[in-house]
Design a protein around this nucleic acid. Sequence first.
DNA 1: GTCTATACGACGATAGAC
DNA 2: GTCTATCGTCGTATAGAC
Lengths: 205, 205
Amino acid sequence: MSPRNKEQFKEIRDQRQQELRRSAIQMFSQKGFASAKISDITSNAQLSHGLFYHYFASKEELYIEVIRDILYDFIDLVEQAAEFEMTALGKMEWLTEATHSGSIKEGVYRHILVLQALYSDHLNELAKREIVALYKEAVDGIGSIIKTGQQEGLFVEGDPEELATYHLSLAHGLLLWNARTEKPVQLSTDKVLRQLKKTENGGTC
Amino acid sequence: MSPRNKEQFKEIRDQRQQELRRSAIQMFSQKGFASAKISDITSNAQLSHGLFYHYFASKEELYIEVIRDILYDFIDLVEQAAEFEMTALGKMEWLTEATHSGSIKEGVYRHILVLQALYSDHLNELAKREIVALYKEAVDGIGSIIKTGQQEGLFVEGDPEELATYHLSLAHGLLLWNARTEKPVQLSTDKVLRQLKKTENGGTC
DNA sequence: GTCTATACGACGATAGAC
DNA sequence: GTCTATCGTCGTATAGAC
């Protein structure tokens, strides 16, 4: 077996892994952990169900990995926003829009998946604590942005972390609601950010 | 069989039904539809699992009834708020606190249950539409309160229904988050309502 | 109305051929 | 690496005794 072949195998393995993860996000969030069958996940990724166990030890293992993936992505997004060369308000606008970009359904599925993981008992407390910790990392990142916004004098006073929590609550709640209505309310970054901004007409007051 | 006995039987039936519904809310929301076994629901209500089918035709039937119950309760709550003799702001404050009262966990479980119902495929589209319609009824009720608040000049301008959606998104999102953190952020009705109020210091400006 | 026992199907996981 | 066939388990729903 040449090293060439070894590499090729590894590539195939990685690619299949990725396909299964993608498929799992879809299935788990649409059907929930228990109802998403292995065969749902594999057939959606166009593999046989037997092959699943060459890539993951169990259904539960895949579940937790997928949730980790989602949260890492979200943390990345926040970090990306933080590094832009713009005002805190601009960063928050960008972040708000990015959270709601792409397919609405996709965003909402990912969010529900995290919720389900936290509030069901498929996962042990240790795993749940890890998830909470990752989410908190994202909240802290947003808190930092808000803090600079306060120093710029554009944002209301108050504990930045608490304000970040309020912001995320609003953004995600809205995401959920929008995904179900026939004609979704056009997302208004303005309105989502209203609670953060000091006043609408600043110095002219 | 005397009429006296007939009545007694009916009472027992009703009571058992109620016990099963209560138990089901707990189990469904904690474990999800698929993972909540009939035996979980019955044993939690201290009945044998066989007896379940004397009260409900299937697990799915109970599921949808329970969700209806939750939404009817919520609509009642909004109507109650609307009928008070107070300003719109007072009504919204009362409603916000009522939503977060009782055990936090209980409130959050009920909310998650509705979400799960909407975003999983245990329910057919018809049932989902009914749920959305009920939820919308509650949103409309809140929208009405907001409208009077605008006429009083205390609330920001904008489509009342849209503002109601934002309010609920924030309130429920916060509920979810609070239930998972070790030391929940003390609910601040003030901050939840900030997005609705016109300015913090009104006429003195 | 309440219970226990059981039929029946579904699904996670494994074995073994290719 | 990929597939099909199969085992073992678990859970819904039913049957039938009390």
